[in-house]
């Protein structure tokens, strides 16, 4: 298959809840190998948009195209196997499993071993080495045998990224990776995202504008469920409509 210029595209996607369109007529083009950010004031529809792209929600309208293939009708689990993996806004780890087991669950995806209820756990120790490599990549080697409930918030996020990486996704969607993080955790996570972006396409929803300016090649600004504009950080941050939208958002919140 000829590699198209865009790893992920959305054409006119929308989602309606009752009479309310949370996302309406959104077009997105995520260039292969880039880090693309989606920003917007609270309630702009970022997370809904994100959930539509990963098929956690079914779109009411429009098409989603991953590597030239229409994935609009597929399930989340199928999308994951086609090379697009996501993280969650609220850290999503398996709390009572150890860090190693967390990553190993993802490694079992498509491994066939996942159905073996009659085999001892030893039978998948062959996956441990790969899991350890992934933990090392995110700096969690020391936490290998700790349950994820015992990890700090920042480390949980790192573990989640290691778990996502286990799928070896071509396209990674990160939903507010720094949400709720203290200052000391933000920098390592940003560095980690940059590190894992090599050879991948990343779409990131993020509130923290310094993280956005730091990481992203292109930025899409959403407002009231629609695309306000798209451009580089310099273009976006100097656009009056964007400034007004953010100011408006602040006013609404106050």
């Amino acid at each position: 298959m000829a590699q198209s210029e865009f790893a992920l595209e959305a054409k006119g996607i929308g989602r309606r809840f009752g009479d309310f369109w949370a996302v309406k007529d959104v077009d997105l083009q995520i260039r292969r190998g880039s880090i693309h950010a989606m920003i917007g004031p609270n309630g702009a529809g970022k997370t809904t948009c994100f959930n539509l792209l990963t098929k956690t929600l079914q779109p009411s309208t429009g098409q989603i195209i991953l590597n030239g293939e229409d994935i609009s009708k597929l399930r989340t689990s199928d999308v994951a196997r086609k090379g697009m993996a996501r993280s969650f806004q609220i850290s999503a780890t398996f709390t009572e499993l150890t860090a190693l087991e967390n990553v190993r669950v993802a490694l079992q995806s498509g491994h066939g071993s996942a159905w073996r209820f009659w085999s001892p756990i030893r039978s998948i120790y062959s996956l441990n080495q790969r899991a350890e490599e992934l933990l090392e990549q995110v700096g969690l080697s020391a936490a290998r045998d700790m349950t994820s409930a015992e990890l700090s918030y920042g480390k949980k996020r790192a573990l989640e990224i290691a778990t996502t990486l286990a799928l070896e996704p071509e396209v990674m969607l990160l939903d507010e990776p720094t949400a709720g993080m203290g200052h000391e955790d933000i920098e390592p996570i940003t560095a980690l995202i940059r590190k894992v972006s090599a050879g991948r396409t990343i779409l990131i929803v993020e509130h923290n504008l310094s993280v956005v300016s730091d990481l992203s090649d292109r930025i899409t600004v959403l407002q009231a469920g629609q695309v306000l504009m798209e451009g580089t950080y310099a273009e976006v941050s100097s656009d009056e409509r964007v400034i007004a939208a953010y100011m408006g958002g602040v006013d609404d919140a106050a």
Binding site: T76, A80, F88, F94, T95, S109, L167
Partner: peptide
């Protein structure tokens, strides 16, 4: 522990 996450892993 987290069903949606399992689904998102394929």
């Amino acid at each position: 522990d987290n069903e949606p996450r399992v689904e998102s892993l394929g």
